[in-house]
Design a protein around this nucleic acid. Structure first.
Lengths: 361, 361
DNA sequence: CCTTCGTTTTACAACGTTGTAAGAGCGCTC
DNA sequence: GAGCGCTCTTACAACGTTGTAAAACGAAGG
C-alpha cells in the first residue's frame, strides 16, 4: 500500500496536519524536535506526497502545461524550433519544482479543457498563431496564467515572449544590402498583418524597400527545396533569399544547388533562428540568431512570477537578436566581384570565412 | 467557481453517481432519457472533469510519464533522436486519451518519485542506459507499467522496445564490405557488454571480423568533427567509418572534409537512425533507418495493453531496420575504382546519386 | 491560584471524484 | 396484493491532502 500522511503521523505520534506543515516548509508553526523526527520518518518510510490529492485540496497543482499545435489527430511533428525549446522549458520548470504536462492541441477548445482538467497553474503556448491564441483566451477561466511564446497577441490573459523579429528582419536586410543585394526574395509562411513573420517582413522591408518579392511557402525543408529549384526561373534577377526559418533556408539552398545555382556566388541565402543545423550544411548558413535557452528561461520566469507572486509582469518580453555570418551569403556577383563591392575579403580566392573546405571553385 | 459533478447532478435532478456513470460511459446502468439530459447539461455548463479528483478516487490517473535523462540540473539537451520520438509518443497517447507528463531525470530516485507522485499509470523511459534502468526498477512500486525504449534490459517490471540493432550493424558492415571496404572504423559512445551500441557493434563485427578499430566518442556533432579531423592521422589505412548515430556521422563527415579528405571518394561515412538531417547535408548520409513513428506506436501499444488489459505482452519488441543508401558511401578508391568493384555508376564523372551539385571536383 | 498570552498541536470539514451496497420503482406472477 | 426479479438510482464512505478554527500546553504576570 501507499505510504500516506496518516502513516507518517501515526508513526510520529502527531496529527496529519503537523506532518503536512513540516513537509511544506510551514515550519514556523512546528517545534524543531518534531520537525526532525518527522523528517527522519519520511525518509525512512520513503514517503512521496500525492500530487493528485494536493492539487485537489490546495488550489495549485504545481504543474504547468506546455501546449503545442497538433494540426490533426494524426501528425504531431513538432517543429525543430519548438522542439529545441521544449527541453529548455522542462529544465527551467523542473528547477522550480514544477512538473510539465506536454499536450498537443488539435481543436481550440482543448486548451481550456487541458487547463481545467488538471488544475494547471500555468501554461506555455508554443508556436500558435496570434488569431488562434485569441480564440483560446476567449474561453479562459482566468485562474491559469498563460505565456505565449512567439506571439504578439497581447490581451488581458496572455503575455508574450518573442524575439525582436522586426530588428531580425532589418539586420538580415542590412547584411544583404551591405553585400550589394537589392533584389531579394522574402520566403516564409503566409502572414496577415500581425505575428512573427509579419514583424520580420516589416523590418526587412524597411531596409530593402519595395524591391522584394514575397514567396509564401510552408516552413519545411521540402517546401524550401521546391522553391530553390524554381527560384531562378521565377525570379531571374534575384541575387539573394531571406527565409523566415533555418529549415526553410536550408531547403532553399539545397534546391538552388540542385538546380545548378551556386550558393553564395550566384545567390545568397539567409535563415532565421540559428539552429544547430546551420553549422551542419554546406555552405554553413548565415542566419539571425535568437537565444533559445534565454527565451525559455524568460517565458518560465514570467509565468512563475505571475503564478507565485500574482504579479502581472511588465506586459511582454522581447529578446535581442544578432546576425551570425556564415558561408551562405556573399557579395553580389560572387567573391571576385566582392572586392569592388566594399567587402573586405581575404587575400586568396578561397571562400569566405566559415564556408569550410567544400564548394570552393 | 468550477463546475462540478454536483452542479450537473442538481441541475439534472439526479445524484452525482448517475452523472459520473454517464460521463464514464457506464451507461448500462442509466436510462437513455437521463443520459441525453445529462449530456446536454454537461455541454451547456461546460463541465470538465477534474483529473486530480478522478486520479485520487479511482486508482488510475490516465497519465503516463515520458522520462528522459537530464544529466545535471542544468542541461536538458534532449538528443535529436529522442526529441523526434517524444512528439510521436504524445500523439499516440493522446489518441488513446492519456495525458503526458514530461520529466527530466537527474537522480535515479526521481523515477519512482515521479511515478508515485502523480499516480502515473505507466511510463516510457527514453534513452537510458541498461544499468540505469536496473537501478530505477529496483525501487519500483510494481503498480506502474514501464516500457523502456532502446533498452535490452529485460526484467520483471520493464519491457523494452528497440530496433534490431544487431542486424543494423550487420547491414552497415555488409554494405561497406560490398563496396570493397575492409578497414573500417567503428565510432560510437563507450559501451560495455550490453546495450544498443554493443548490439550494433556485434552485428558489425560479425561481418567485418577483427579488422575494425573502435573510437569511443560522445554522440555529438562536435565530437564527430574532432574525430573526422584526426581520422587520417590516426587511422591512415581506414577507408570508411560507421558511426552509431547520424549526428555523429555528420560531424565526422564535416571533420573529414575540413581536413581535405573527400567523402565518399577517399573515406565513406555511415550513420544510424535516418534522421531528417541525413538529407540536409552534402553528401547526403547513407544510414541505417529505423521507423520512429512505429517505435513510438509500439511502445505505446505495449504500455496501454499492459495498463488496460493488465496483460503482460510478449516480453519485448524488436523492430526492423533497413539500409538507406545515399551519397556518403562509395566504392573503395572512389567512383573510378568503383567501375571494377562491381558498383554500377552513372556515365558521367559527376558525383553519385544524391550527392547533389556541391563538392564535385 | 487564576488569568493571559504565545506557541505548538489537533479535530473537522472541505476538495471533486469513484465504488459499494442498499434502496425505489416497475411490471410480472401466483 | 404480497412476492419476485428486473432496471435504475441513491446515500455514504472512501481517496490523500490542505485550511480553519479551536484546543492543549507551558510560562509568565497579577
Amino acid at each position: 500500500m501507499r505510504v500516506t500522511l496518516k502513516d507518517i503521523a501515526q508513526r510520529a505520534g502527531v496529527s496529519m496536519m503537523t506532518v503536512s506543515n513540516v513537509i511544506n516548509g510551514n515550519s514556523a508553526r512546528v517545534s524543531q524536535a518534531t520537525i526532525e523526527r518527522i523528517e527522519r520518518i519520511v525518509v525512512e518510510l520513503g514517503y512521496v506526497p500525492s500530487h493528485s490529492a494536493r492539487s485537489l485540496a490546495a488550489k495549485s497543482s504545481r504543474m504547468v502545461g506546455v501546449l503545442v499545435p497538433a494540426a490533426d489527430e494524426e501528425s504531431l511533428t513538432i517543429s525543430p524550433h519548438n522542439v529545441a525549446i521544449i527541453g529548455q522549458l522542462e529544465r527551467e520548470l523542473r528547477k522550480r519544482a514544477y512538473d510539465v504536462l506536454l499536450r498537443g492541441i488539435a481543436r481550440p477548445g482543448e486548451v481550456a479543457e487541458a487547463l481545467r482538467a488538471w488544475n494547471l497553474d500555468g501554461a506555455v503556448l508554443l508556436g500558435f498563431l496570434d488569431e488562434e491564441i485569441a480564440t483560446f483566451t476567449a474561453a479562459s477561466t482566468g485562474r491559469t496564467k498563460i505565456v505565449a511564446v512567439d506571439s504578439y497577441a497581447d490581451n488581458p490573459v496572455t503575455r508574450g515572449v518573442r524575439t525582436d523579429d522586426f530588428t531580425g528582419g532589418r539586420l538580415a536586410a542590412e547584411h544583404l544590402k551591405g553585400l550589394g543585394h537589392v533584389d531579394v526574395v522574402f520566403a516564409g509562411p503566409r502572414f496577415a498583418g500581425h505575428g512573427v513573420v509579419w514583424q520580420r517582413f516589416q523590418g526587412f522591408r524597411e531596409e530593402l524597400g519595395a524591391d522584394c518579392a514575397v514567396e509564401a511557402v510552408n516552413t519545411t525543408y521540402d517546401a524550401g527545396v521546391d522553391l530553390g529549384r524554381r527560384l531562378r526561373a521565377e525570379h531571374p534577377s534575384a541575387t539573394a533569399v531571406f527565409a523566415t526559418a533555418d529549415i526553410l533556408a536550408i531547403g532553399i539552398q539545397a534546391g538552388l544547388q540542385e538546380a545548378g545555382v551556386r550558393v553564395p556566388d550566384e545567390v545568397s541565402v539567409m535563415g532565421f533562428d540559428d539552429l544547430d543545423l546551420c553549422r551542419y550544411v554546406r555552405p554553413t548558413l548565415t542566419t539571425i540568431a535568437q537565444d533559445l535557452p534565454e527565451k525559455a528561461a524568460t517565458a518560465v520566469a514570467m509565468l512563475i512570477g505571475e503564478i507565485e507572486r500574482d504579479e502581472a509582469p511588465p506586459e511582454s518580453a522581447t529578446l535581442d537578436v544578432r546576425l551570425v555570418e556564415r558561408g551562405s551569403t556573399g557579395p553580389v556577383g560572387g567573391a571576385a566581384a566582392g572586392e569592388t563591392a566594399g567587402v573586405v575579403a581575404g587575400g586568396g580566392p578561397a571562400g569566405t570565412a566559415g564556408v569550410g573546405a567544400v564548394g570552393a571553385d
